[in-house]
Design a protein around this nucleic acid. Structure first.
Lengths: 153, 153
DNA sequence: TGGGATTATATGGGCGTCAATGGGTATATG
DNA sequence: CATATACCCATTGACGCCCATATAATCCCA
């Protein structure tokens, strides 16, 4: 499986370390197994993360913008300066920057939610509530969810 | 990681030295690990910096502008003639020219903002304000930041 | 197939190393 | 000779690496 799926609830220890779920670690390419990027989610009070490979994609895209334009600076600033890279230690743990923990309201425990090509880190209760809200919205607004899930190709 | 990412706030000591963030030092090619170039940003009250290797890339971009346009001369003059090279000492510190500090309003502390292939040095408060403004401008526009972040290759 | 044995994962903690910062002194440069 | 800059050494706190353990998952063989 090369996608981030399922959800996990892990603890933050005294040193601020938290385990990246094993199944998430396995999604990272062997070459960059010990480095991930984190950034504050734009749409919610959560942290999003993924392997460094995605960052290089983004860099390429930004690089194609007109270098002397305002857009270039806006994207470049909003993305590169807001992203942090974090090292995953041999035991699979990493540090969440203090600023990010504040943003997401995370204290001693965090919830990892697989999102396919990336994952989200939530304060556990808020994360569960968000799942609930998302699902309800989906069921109400899109009757097609059922179809999508049951349809065969 | 071979990109300048994240942001850092470092102090300038009595001798005028300031540490280039460790992760930025690692982006510089091993061959020219102790030399960086600095120039005044043409778009903001900040200083931009990068490894000497990037000079070629800057030259190329300027070259792509219409040779007979005013822009060409302006950019060419504004950037090339204003570039200074600075040595990074064994502890990873360097000196910011007085004129540049004045330009950016930097006194005792400076903020480093990763911009992918280069970085910016700001007076801390102004840097944060700039990030805020950039982000707000992006969120308002149709070209969404989200697309940039989540789009797949 | 049951159940002990091996492996993996999440978590805890010691300790050495490195990054950021401060300061003394030699060296250079005009 | 005066000022600026490079080199060297020191300090502190953060972080990475190593080792340890408990629980859970997997395996393997009788």
């Amino acid at each position: 499986m090369d996608l981030f799926v399922s959800k996990y609830f892990n603890k933050i220890d005294k040193k601020g370390r938290i385990s990246l779920p094993s199944s998430f670690r396995n999604v990272l390419p062997k070459a960059n197994k010990n480095e991930i990027i984190l950034y504050k989610s734009i749409k919610s009070q959560s942290i999003e993360g993924c392997g460094v490979g995605r960052l290089k994609e983004i860099a390429k895209r930004i690089n194609n913008l007109d270098f002397f334009s305002e857009d270039y600076d806006d994207f470049s600033t909003s993305i590169f300066s807001e992203i942090v890279t974090t090292n995953v230690d041999k035991e699979g743990r990493f540090l969440i920057p203090e600023e990010f923990k504040l943003y997401a309201g995370i204290k001693t425990e965090a919830a990892f939610f697989g999102q396919g090509h990336f994952f989200q880190i939530w304060e556990p209760k808020q994360g569960l509530k968000n799942t609930e809200v998302s699902r309800r919205r989906l069921l109400k607004e899109k009757k097609s969810l059922r179809m999508m899930l049951t349809q065969q190709k």
